[in-house]
């Protein structure tokens, strides 16, 4: 039997010190962790259940922005009226993620740290080669079935897509990940695979996500999340875009624009090139169309995922026009 020890943390301190022990994983909703344990991908010796910690599930919104406790459930955050009003893209990203059952179980902290759906990563028995699982072992996806794999931020070592929806919205609005006392900008929190695809984020041993904050902005208030996928529910993005826009007083010039991409990159992707091309420009379909092409600058396909290079700019374009109409 694969035995492991289970510890229910009763305080943040207890959780942090337990988390510092080797081969230890935090257990939140368990929808990623248990799934991967069953696949034989994760094999923790110690699980620290953090779901009973008090005070880490609050959702508050004030003039500064939103603060979302790491243990808040996806479904609750999605339905929160003030999130809906001030960060519609965040609510929409959550509503369109996973299934109702998963959203009721899963936490915001766990959601950020969900792992890739790369089928090779998930099947160690049949595919020993996976640099993310076993550094240096190779990548089975490069020449395999890779319809869902990333075209942006890839490396020679790994082309796995970061699958989450929420993070695409968070990266657009400069969210900050709180690790107890330490704060990390979300764009720095997620790491590119480079030569070390097994290192996915900036958490250090003993740290846990305690909250996410999102600074208030006009763009975030006028935002939307557009998710294109094979089926209409319970499915990861083929390509998605979180877009928020702030217009000048003339109601047509773009003062600020934020664009996050999902489903196409190895980490939650900020489409800065598109933002830069549009800031100060008139919100007009042709301009938006040509700027949107910049979303996939430098993209590399590996066969099955070539369509994403065509699809992603179209999703960005539609999302910009949609959020422009809100602005």
């Amino acid at each position: 039997m694969r035995d492991f020890s289970y510890l229910r943390a009763n305080s943040f301190e207890e959780a942090s010190s337990a988390a510092a022990m080797p081969a230890t994983m935090l257990l939140a909703g368990g929808t990623t962790l248990i799934d991967l344990a069953k696949c034989g991908v994760t094999n923790p010796e110690r699980l620290v259940d953090i779901t009973h910690l008090d005070g880490f599930d609050a959702v508050t919104v004030d003039a500064e922005g939103a603060s979302i406790g790491a243990l808040a459930k996806m479904s609750r955050v999605a339905a929160d009226p003030s999130i809906l009003e001030n960060f519609p893209a965040v609510s929409e990203a959550l509503w369109q993620a996973a299934s109702a059952q998963i959203r009721n179980m899963a936490t915001i902290g766990g959601n950020l740290l969900q792992r890739t759906r790369c089928a090779y990563f998930r099947d160690p028995a049949s595919f020993p080669a996976c640099n993310k699982r076993v550094p240096g072992s190779g990548c089975s996806a490069m020449e395999g079935v890779n319809r869902g794999h990333a075209v942006l931020g890839t490396s020679q070592a790994c082309i796995a897509t970061y699958p989450g929806d929420l993070a695409a919205a968070l990266v657009a609005f400069d969210a900050i990940v709180h690790l107890g006392g330490r704060k990390v900008a979300i764009d720095d929190f997620f790491l590119l695979p480079g030569a070390t695809p097994h290192q996915e984020h900036a958490i250090q041993p003993g740290e846990m996500i305690t909250a996410i904050t999102i600074p208030a902005s006009v763009a975030a208030r006028h935002s939307t999340y557009l998710k294109v996928r094979d089926r209409q529910s319970y499915e990861f993005a083929a390509a998605s875009a979180a877009v928020g826009i702030e217009l000048e007083a003339d109601r047509e010039t773009i003062r600020d624009i934020r664009i996050g991409l999902g489903g196409v990159a190895t980490k939650p992707w900020r489409a800065r090139a598109v933002e830069n091309a549009l800031r100060g420009k008139v919100l007009e379909p042709d301009i938006v169309k040509s700027a949107s092409r910049l979303a996939v600058e430098g993209a590399i396909a590996h066969g099955g995922n070539h369509y994403k290079i065509e699809l992603a700019p179209r999703v960005v374009e539609r999302a910009i026009l949609k959020s422009g109409a809100l602005a």
């Binding site: 759906r117 089928a119 094979d230 089926r231 209409q232 529910s233 319970y234 499915e235």
Partner: peptide
């Protein structure tokens, strides 16, 4: 990963 229709489809 093997997709069958959901109610929404």
């Amino acid at each position: 990963d093997y997709l069958v229709p959901t109610n929404a489809d």
